[in-house]
């Protein structure tokens, strides 16, 4: 979590207008999910290159984000290739049609995860939430989302410290004890969150808070050159996807 947040704030593109990155990441995500699955890897590959070469996110950080979902995918997708039938007793069999569906889902999902990683690693959550206000979400709710984001990091740190302290005192040895420890930690965190929130409220009130967190922003302009390049890339990928042949069916 810390890793993602760090690169989201500090990458080669962080001085550019966030709208450019949002357009690129969401455009690629859309292509990865909406196009026929054989073309999805093109969008995924573009996302990887954009993150590593464009935004300068280190490979290790990128892999760390993608590794867990990729693992789930490897574990879960083969199930789609199995088919069950119970008309004449329970029968479990490999199905070529299922294998094709599984391959499609895996390609689409892996490519989409690469695009999600690009989005998460280059755009800070605060900048993703800001456009919500223009989309009609009430300002009060948007502000609540930002406050939650702030508190999540504070609270996650407490949770980690608590977990470490419990582990050091053998609180995680055995199922019974670790369950009890988790419950103690969790219930203690709620009080923690309130104390933290209360202090924040007090601090804000002391500074004349009237409902809007005004922050000084660096004026960032859209660059016509970069926008043009992004649109061109997306359009090129769309065309390439349209001309690509569909996935071959499983050889039988």
């Amino acid at each position: 979590m810390q890793g993602i947040d760090r690169y989201a704030y500090d990458n080669r593109w962080s001085r550019h207008h966030p709208g450019e990155r949002l357009l690129l990441a969401f455009g690629l995500l859309f292509l990865a999910v909406w196009q026929q699955p054989a073309a999805a890897p093109l969008a995924g590959l573009a996302a990887i290159l954009a993150a590593l070469l464009g935004a300068g996110v280190p490979l290790s950080a990128y892999l760390k984000v993608v590794a867990a979902p990729a693992g789930f995918l490897l574990a879960g997708t083969p199930l789609l290739a199995l088919s069950v039938e119970w008309s004449e007793g329970l029968r479990l069999a490999f199905s070529p049609e299922g294998a094709r569906v599984a391959a499609e889902a895996a390609l689409r999902s892996l490519s989409a995860v690469c695009c999600l990683a690009l989005l998460a690693l280059t755009v800070p959550v605060t900048e993703m939430v800001a456009p919500l206000r223009r989309m009609g979400v009430p300002a009060a709710v948007v502000e609540l989302v930002l406050l939650i984001h702030r508190l999540v990091f504070v609270l996650a740190e407490r949770a980690l410290a608590g977990h470490r302290a419990q582990a050091a005192r053998l609180g995680q040895s055995g199922v019974r004890r670790s369950l009890r420890s988790a419950a103690l930690l969790g219930s203690g965190l709620l009080g923690r969150a309130y104390v933290k929130a209360e202090r924040m409220e007090l601090g804000l009130a002391a500074r004349g808070f009237s409902g809007d967190l005004g922050t000084l922003r660096q004026p960032r302009r859209f660059s016509a050159k970069r926008l043009g390049a992004i649109v061109l890339l997306l359009f090129g990928l769309l065309l390439a996807g349209l001309t690509m042949p569909e996935l071959p069916s499983w050889p039988t």
């Binding site: 406050l147 939650i148 508190l151 999540v152 609270l155 996650a156 709620l190 969150a193 929130a197 924040m200």
Partner: peptide, 12 residues
């Protein structure tokens, strides 16, 4: 702020 605390709590 109580609601924000609750949301952060749910995440953690």
């Amino acid at each position: 702020l109580p609601l924000a605390a609750a949301g952060a709590f749910a995440f953690v």
